[in-house]
Amino acid sequence: MSVIKINAITVPADSGDELAKRFAARAGAVDGQPGFEGFELLQPTDGRNVWLVITRWADEESFEAWKASASFGHGHRKPEGDDAPRQRPVGTGAELWSFAVADLTQGA
């Protein structure tokens, strides 16, 4: 059964465009990971300042394997070298939420 991971990132109003730009620069980077089923970046439209990064995985093991992979490390690393541009963090906080797709056939 699929599992859903939601990274709820608190982003100041003036930083949302930068967050979207950074995700766009890495679009497709996770696509080839075993067990990966999908990705969405949700931008708030109701005045909230929390963006949702939603990923869907075949199972918990696939998600954990990705977190332990070089690909994850590469995408979440800080720039290297003295001449590397330093990017300020976009978010001011984040929470990882975990869900399973509910089985609606139980009890039917």
Rank of each mutant, 00 (worst) to 15 (best):
D17S: 09
E18Y: 02
L19I: 11
L19E: 08
L19T: 05
A20Y: 01
A20S: 12
K21E: 15
K21L: 12
K21G: 05
R22W: 04
A24Q: 08
A25Y: 06
A27H: 07
A27I: 07
G28S: 08
G28M: 11
A29D: 11
G32I: 06
G32D: 10
G32Q: 10
G32C: 05
Q33M: 14
Q33K: 08
Q33P: 01
Q33N: 09
P34K: 04
G35C: 06
G35Y: 02
G35S: 06
G38A: 09
G38S: 11
G38H: 04
F39G: 00
F39E: 06
F39H: 03
E40C: 08
E40W: 10
E40I: 01
E40S: 12
L42E: 05
P44V: 09
P44A: 13
T45L: 14
T45S: 14
D46S: 12
G47Y: 09
G47Q: 09
R48M: 12
N49A: 14
V50K: 05
V53R: 04
I54Y: 01
T55M: 04
T55H: 01
R56C: 03
R56I: 08
A58R: 09
D59V: 11
D59W: 13
E60A: 11
E61D: 12
S62L: 08
F63A: 00
E64T: 14
E64G: 03
E64Y: 07
E64H: 13
W66K: 02
W66I: 03
A68L: 04
A68P: 00
A68G: 01
S69K: 01
A70C: 02
S71F: 02
S71N: 14
S71M: 11
F72P: 02
G73N: 12
H74I: 10
H76L: 07
R77A: 15
R77K: 13
R77N: 08
R77S: 15
R77W: 00
K78S: 07
K78Y: 00
P79Y: 08
P79G: 08
P79H: 04
G81N: 04
D82Y: 04
D82E: 10
D83S: 13
R88E: 10
P89K: 08
P89T: 03
T92R: 08
T92A: 05
G93C: 09
G93D: 15
A94D: 13
